[in-house]
Design a protein around this nucleic acid. Structure first.
Lengths: 391, 391
DNA sequence: TGGTTATGTTCCACGGGAGAACAAACTCGA
DNA sequence: TCGAGTTTGTTCTCCCGTGGAACATAACCA
C-alpha cells in the first residue's frame, strides 16, 4: 500500500530492519558482509541493523562452520529460532495446532483426525483450545509466540466466520471461543483455509519465497476452495472473500449446488460430488479412486471433473493471467489422472496459451496446510515489521 | 512491491516528495500548512518539500482567492499545469490522441472515427503518428510532456502487440512504428485498452482516487475486454495478459469463438454477436438497440447477453470478490436494459451476495477512454516518482 | 492602531546512513 | 613459526533530512 503519512528517520530504520530480516530469511545463512552486499548498504550499516535484530532475538548468530576460506571467518546469521507463531485449523476432517519458528521449522504440532461435519462450533473450538493449550504448555522454554492464526474452510469477515458450508457452521465468532483457553493475549487471526494453504506454496518459510510466485491454488476438500497468488501475495479481494473457485459456473444447466446456484465446479470436482458420480462410497481415499480409474463409471466421473476444472480454471486464468495451476488437497492425489484432460482444455480455452501454455502442478505436503499457512501469516507480520517485536 | 535495496536519506526525501505531490493531487488546492497536517509532518518540512516540487513545476502556486479568513492567507497549491502526458489509442472504430496535464484536464485532443478492422498496422500507426505530431506541435509553449502511452485492444507483451483480434493485427511493434514521428525521446508505453480505460474509472485525475476502488470493468467493443481493479490498482497479471473476461466460458456447448474455444462470453454479449443474434445490422447504434428492446428477437438477444454476463461475471466476482461491476463501451449504453437480469443473476450466483450484493454501474465518458487512461498512466509515473522529474 | 490568528520561514538539534580507516581472525606460503 | 594477504566486523566522522521552536508575515477585528 502507498503510505499515507510521511517517512521520518525512524521509518528509514524500521524499513531497513525489515529489509535485513527479510534478506536473511530469504537467503539462508548470511554473514553481515553478505547482508551488506545484498541490501546495498555498507558493512557498517548492515552490522548495526543486524546487531539490533540479534539483540531482539529475531536473528541468531550461528556457529562458524563454513568451509575454510581465506580471511576472517564470517558469523552466519539465521532467522531467530526462539520466535515462533501458532497456526490452528479446523476442517471437515481434522483439528490441527502447529507451531512454526522464524526458520519455518515445525517446533511442535498436534493433528487430530475427526469427522467434524455438522459439529457444534463452541464444542469443537473448545476442543481445539484445550489441545492448543497443551501444545503451548509443552513448548521449549524461551520460545516466544509472536502471534496466532486460525484457518477455517469458509467465508471469513474480520473475526467472524460467516459461513462454512462443509462444517455446517454459520456466524461463529471463532477467536472469542478460542482466546479464553490460549495463553495470555494470544488471539488468533482468522483466515480462509485455501488462502492460508496457498501461502505455504508461495513461501517455503517466513520471508522465503518459493519457486512459484504467480499461480492459482486449488484446495480440494469436500468442496473446492481456491486462492489466486500474484507476485507471491494471496489475493484476498475487497472483503477477503476472494478465491471461491468452487462456485464458478461450469454449466448453467448443471446440477444444483448447496450455494443456491447451478452447475458450480464443486458439483463436478468436489470430493463428494466426484465420488458420488463415480458410484463410490463418500469416504473412498483418493488412492483407491486412482487405482480404479480404469473402471468406466470412475473414468467418466474423472473425465467430467477434468472437463469442469478445465472450463472453470480457463476462465480464471483468462481473467487473472496465471501461468500455473497448483492442485492441493484431494485433487493433488488425483493430479496424474486429471492433468492430461485439464492441461489440454487449458491449452485450448486460455487466450494466451499460444504464447505461454498454463501448466498444472500438484503439491502433497503434510496434512493441515492451513495451520502452517496461518502460522506463516503471523510470522510474516514479524518479518514485515520487526520494530514492533524489538525490545 | 517490497523494496529489495536499502533506504537511505535520499530515499526518505523522494518518498516524501511523492507523498506531498500525491496529497496535493488527491486533495485539490491545499496550503503548505494543509499538506503538513495531511502528511503528518511539520510545516517546516512540508514547506521544504513543496518548494522543491514548485521549483520543478510539478506543483503550481495558485492565486489567493480563498474566502477571507482570519490569519495570514494561504497560498493554494495545485498539481502543475505545465506538466502533461500524451495518451494514444487505436481501436476498431477510432484513432485518438489526447494530452492531459497533472490536474487531469484535457489540454488538447484529436479523435478520428474510422473503421480500422483489418487495416494495415504500419499505415494506421503512421496516420496516428502524423496526427499526434500535429497535436503536439500545437501545444501551448512551456508544457512539458512527461511521457506517452498507447492503448491497444489486444494482448500486449512489453513493446509488442501480440494479437488484436478486432483489428486483425498480429505481432506489431507499435512503439517502433510510432516513435519516429513523435517529438524527441517520446516513446509510448503500450497497454491493453481495457486496463487503461479501467484506470479512468479508478482515478479521476493523476493521483486522485475516484469513489470506486474495487471493481470489475467491462469494456464492450466488438469483443469484450475487461480489467479487475483492486484497491485502485489494475490487475495486469503475471505477464500483463489479465482481464480477458470476454473469453470466460459461459456454456461449453455454446457457439464457437474466434479464439478457438466455445461458448465465450463475447459470443453472447459482444457487440457483433449481440446484434447478429438480434437480427440487426452490425452498425446499429446502442441507442437504437435500447429503443427496440420491446421487439422479440432483440429482447431475446438482450436476455441472452444478460444471462451470459451474469454467469461469467458471477464467476469472476466469486474468485476476485469485487463489489461492483462497471459497464463501459457499448455495454454502458445497454446498462439499463441489461442491469435487471444481470443483477438478479449475480445475486443468485455470487456466494457472498447474501452479505454484500454486487451492484452494476455504467460509465459513459468521452470517447477513447483508453487514450485518457494511457495518459493517466504516464502521469501516475510522475506522481509515483517525482524526483526523476525534478531538475 | 494594536491585538489576534493562521501561514510560512529560519535556525539548530537529533537520528540514521555513507565512507574511510582500523582491528580481528583466519589461510597460505616461505 | 611467522609474516603477508584477505576477508570480516567495528569505530569514527561527515552529511543529509526531518523535528521542533522561535520568528516573520499578512490578513481580520475591535
Amino acid at each position: 500500500m502507498t503510505p499515507t503519512s510521511a517517512a521520518r528517520q525512524s521509518t528509514l530504520r524500521s524499513s531497513n530492519l525489515a529489509l535485513v530480516l527479510r534478506t536473511v530469511c530469504a537467503g539462508g545463512p548470511l554473514s553481515r558482509a553478505d547482508v551488506a552486499v545484498r541490501t546495498g548498504t555498507t558493512r557498517a550499516t548492515a552490522a548495526r541493523l543486524v546487531d539490533d535484530l540479534v539483540a531482539g532475538r529475531l536473528l541468531d548468530e550461528g556457529e562458524r562452520l563454513t568451509p575454510p576460506r581465506r580471511g576472517r571467518p564470517a558469523t552466519p546469521l539465521l532467522p531467530g529460532a526462539r520466535v515462533g507463531a501458532l497456526g490452528l485449523q479446523v476442517d471437515a476432517g481434522l483439528l490441527a495446532a502447529r507451531v512454526l519458528d522464524l526458520r519455518g521449522r515445525v517446533v511442535a504440532e498436534h493433528v487430530e483426525d475427526d469427522d467434524l461435519v455438522g459439529s457444534d462450533p463452541a464444542r469443537t473450538l473448545a476442543r481445539l483450545g484445550a489441545l492448543t493449550a497443551d501444545l503451548v504448555a509443552g513448548l521449549p522454554a524461551g520460545l516466544r509466540l509472536a502471534g496466532a492464526g486460525l484457518a477455517l474452510p469458509g467465508l471469513v469477515d474480520g473475526d467472524l466466520l460467516l459461513r462454512a458450508p462443509n462444517l455446517g457452521w454459520t456466524d461463529v465468532p471463532a477467536p472469542d471461543l478460542l482466546a479464553a483457553q490460549l495463553p495470555g493475549g494470544l488471539r488468533p487471526v482468522v483466515g480462509n483455509e485455501a488462502d492460508l494453504a496457498a501461502r505455504t506454496v508461495a513461501d517455503t518459510a517466513p520471508g522465503r519465497p518459493g519457486p512459484l510466485r504467480d499461480f492459482l491454488y486449488l484446495s480440494g476438500q469436500i468442496g473446492i476452495g481456491g486462492a489466486a497468488v500474484l507476485g507471491g501475495r494471496v489475493l484476498t479481494g475487497s472483503a477477503g472473500w476472494a478465491g471461491e473457485v468452487g462456485h464458478v459456473c461450469v454449466d448453467p444447466d448443471g446440477p444444483a449446488c448447496r450455494c443456491g446456484s447451478t452447475g458450480c465446479l464443486e458439483q463436478y470436482a468436489g470430493r463428494h460430488a466426484l465420488l458420488a458420480a463415480a458410484g463410490l462410497p463418500l469416504d473412498t481415499p483418493p488412492a483407491e479412486v486412482v487405482a480404479r480409474a480404469g473402471e468406466l463409471p470412475v473414468r467418466r466421473a474423472l473425465d467430467a471433473a477434468a472437463d469442469a476444472l478445465g472450463v472453470a480454471l480457463a476462465g480464471v486464468v483468462n481473467v487473472l493471467d496465471l501461468p500455473v495451476v497448483v492442485l492441493g488437497g484431494h485433487l493433488a492425489a488425483l493430479a496424474d489422472v486429471l492433468r492430461p484432460g485439464l492441461e489440454e482444455l487449458l491449452g485450448r480455452r486460455v487466450l494466451s496459451a499460444r504464447w505461454r501454455r498454463p501448466t498444472v502442478l500438484a503439491v502433497t505436503g503434510p496434512p493441515a496446510a492451513g495451520a502452517t499457512g496461518a502460522a506463516l501469516q503471523a510470522l510474516d507480520a514479524v518479518v514485515a515489521d520487526p520494530v514492533a517485536w524489538l525490545p
